[in-house]
Amino acid sequence: MRIILLGPPGAGKGTQSERIVERFGIPQLSTGDMLRAAVAAGTPVGLEAKAVMESGGLVSDTTVVGIVADRIEESDAKRGFILDGFPRTVEQAAALDAMLARKGIALSAVVEFKVDETALLGRIAKRAEETAARGQPVRKDDTPEVFKTRLDAYRKQTAPLSDYYAKTGLLHVIDGMQPIDTVTQKTMSVLGQHAETAAS
């Protein structure tokens, strides 16, 4: 089962990823972790990424897709994987599709967690206030200003993926504003169908 999770920052992708990993025994692949691992391992794609990062540049889509391509060949990803935080743009999604097609692999499902942005901003502001009230440092990502910037970036770059995957028939939209356990229940219900298809 090969899954992509979509949703703005704060939508609960991390929490749901953990639960999917636990339930289906497939790894969650984060591009940041994969990049660091490829650089540390000194793979050809990792060396390419390292040179770009050291010069202060952004790693190209081709390089990131190459790193994903290497990672999904590893034994723990043979039964499937979760991609979280990638693809971020329609261009990356097209490059990912082409790479998977070359390997004869198809995506099983794309799950998008829909959330109310105003409510999300309120939630983040409250969390920052509570953290500060306890005398703990507030994470930079948890300040409403930074969070708003991240939301804007998501809206411009990543939100169009919703239409992209809707056209493929892979997209399942879940209301991410529901209680966490309800979101999990609906997510498992969607993924359960794909697990059965894969098994048959």
Rank of each mutant, 00 (worst) to 15 (best):
D76H: 05
G85Y: 11
F81Y: 00
R79L: 14
L83D: 12
A106F: 10
E91P: 11
E91T: 14
E91S: 14
S75F: 13
E73A: 15
L96P: 08
R88E: 07
A106D: 09
A94K: 13
K78V: 06
K78M: 07
K103I: 09
A95Q: 12
E73D: 14
A109Y: 12
F113N: 01
I82C: 08
F113A: 04
G80T: 04
A93H: 10
F81M: 00
V90S: 05
A93T: 04
R102H: 03
I72L: 01
A95D: 00
F86L: 02
A93Y: 09
G80Y: 01
Q92P: 12
A77D: 02
A101D: 13
G80A: 02
E74N: 04
L121R: 10
G80C: 06
D97T: 10
A77N: 02
L96V: 08
M99W: 02
A95H: 12
S75P: 15
D76C: 12
F86Q: 07
V111K: 07
A98P: 12
M99D: 03
R102W: 01
G80D: 06
D84R: 03
K103P: 02
I82V: 15
V110M: 08
R102K: 15
K114V: 05
S75E: 15
L100C: 00
V90I: 09
I72S: 05
L107W: 00
A119T: 12
V90A: 03
L96S: 02
L120F: 06
R88I: 01
P87D: 03
A119F: 07
G104T: 09
F86W: 10
A101K: 12
D84Q: 04
T89S: 15
T89Q: 11
L83V: 11
K114R: 13
R102M: 10
E117K: 10
I72A: 05
F86S: 05
E91D: 14
E112F: 15
E74T: 14
E73K: 14
R88S: 04
E74K: 12
D116Y: 12
E74V: 12
V90T: 11
G85M: 00
F113K: 00
L121S: 11
E112W: 15
F81W: 10
L100A: 07
R79E: 15
P87V: 04
A77R: 04
D76S: 13
Q92V: 08
L100V: 02
D76K: 02
E91V: 13
L96N: 06
L96Y: 09
E73V: 00
D76N: 10
I72N: 01
K78E: 14
K78S: 13
G80Q: 05
G104Q: 01
I105Y: 07
V110Y: 04
A93R: 08
V111E: 00
F86P: 00
D116I: 06
V111L: 10
Q92A: 04
A94I: 13
A109R: 15
G104D: 08
L83P: 12
V90C: 04
M99F: 00
L100W: 09
T89Y: 08
I105M: 06
G85N: 10
V90D: 00
I105E: 06
L83R: 01
A93Q: 04
A106V: 04
D116E: 11
